[in-house]
Write a protein that binds this DNA or RNA. Structure first.
Lengths: 191, 191
DNA sequence: TGTACATCAGTGAACGCGCGTTCACTGATGTAC
DNA sequence: TGTACATCAGTGAACGCGCGTTCACTGATGTAC
């Protein structure tokens, strides 16, 4: 045997994280394998010892987002993961629609960073994306999960819509106005 | 002189419309100039008699959306453009979040079809996009435009968010659930 | 009306380039003795 | 402990391919006489 299993796992994880960052910044199709491997401190040839194709990397990268946790990342808003469900939902709304989240492109939610890329991607990638959407729905369901699914879905729509628009606009004032309007509305719904 | 000014204008318009359709289907960067020109009934070499670069076409294509009018396109919902502002806003919500709009990829709103493409595009293209957002805000402002800007912005966020998510999901049931939740909420806000 | 000419929209071969992928090779590492 | 070996993660040149763009050419058209 050469190297350890763990060594290989760590290298692969480094590639995935490097890819996730670059995908968020430039979109799935504006990032080359060479670029990803360089950011991970490797050369492009080794890529195929870890993945059978670039498509496979897409899936792993989007799946790796699920582990992302706003608490550690968007430092202008505090989220207490041990809070009561309704309180947590409220904090998540603020975190999701925060300036920190908008500007932290590297760690941004894939639903904001990659919507149209995913819309045209392979079924496996879309499934990874669906898992991310459902995880978010769950957070916004609060304590009465079963009764408030519709409410949770509309909060997700407002949050994602507000942020997608904000990220697309160069006009900072308008982007902020939209985020503020979306935040207010999301809080109104969640009650 | 060869050919008429009008002949050239018509050809250019045919290229722009062909590009708009293909961009909506495949995204800005998965469509080649050869493909666009073929769809317009031409060969790729002539492209540069009409545009100085592909970037220039992006802008013209996104600007050409503004003329898009849901009335003629999404035939499962009727919109009466001569209706009173509040009534029009209400009809537009139904049209925008309709199944017809979701499925009519060719004529879909660019905010739904191209969000992440535009987020990473050139400033001129982002400005074209901003014009589209502002046009939509105006429609949803209803009769008291000045007083209800925040309301209009949040309606836009819900509508765009709901549709962006719906288009990204392969799971039709979930996509429909989201559109329904978004539509209900948008109507609640617009009152 | 007919003809000779100039224009330029349209054609399609060719260009350089960067991409995803392949492959022969290297050399650091863990294992066996 | 030291040494010989096998493994395979990592390297970097090379591949075919399609892209955006260029360019010399064609030929349909409008204009001048």
């Amino acid at each position: 045997m050469s190297y350890t299993e763990e060594h290989k796992r760590e290298t692969k994880e480094r590639i995935v994280q490097s890819a996730r960052r670059l995908f968020n910044r430039k979109g799935l199709n504006h990032v080359s394998i060479k670029e990803i491997m360089q950011e991970a401190g490797l050369t492009h040839g080794g890529f195929y010892h870890h993945f059978s194709s670039k498509d496979e990397l897409y899936v792993e990268a989007v799946d790796s987002y699920s582990c992302c946790n706003p608490t550690e990342k968007w430092d202008d808003v505090e989220v207490d993961l041990s809070a009561a469900p309704d309180e947590l939902a409220s904090q998540m709304i603020d975190a999701y629609l925060s300036r920190g989240h908008l500007e932290d492109v590297d760690w941004q939610c894939p639903m904001i960073a990659l919507p149209s890329d995913v819309a045209r991607a392979s079924p496996v990638l879309k499934q990874a994306y669906e898992r991310a959407v459902l995880a978010m729905v769950e957070v916004f369901s609060g304590k009465n999960v079963l009764e408030s699914r519709e409410r949770a879905l509309s909060i997700v729509a407002v949050c994602v819509g507000g942020m997608v628009l904000a990220r697309t606009l160069d006009n900072v004032e308008l982007a902020t106005e939209i985020r503020d309007a979306a935040r207010k509305l999301a809080h109104d719904i969640s009650g």
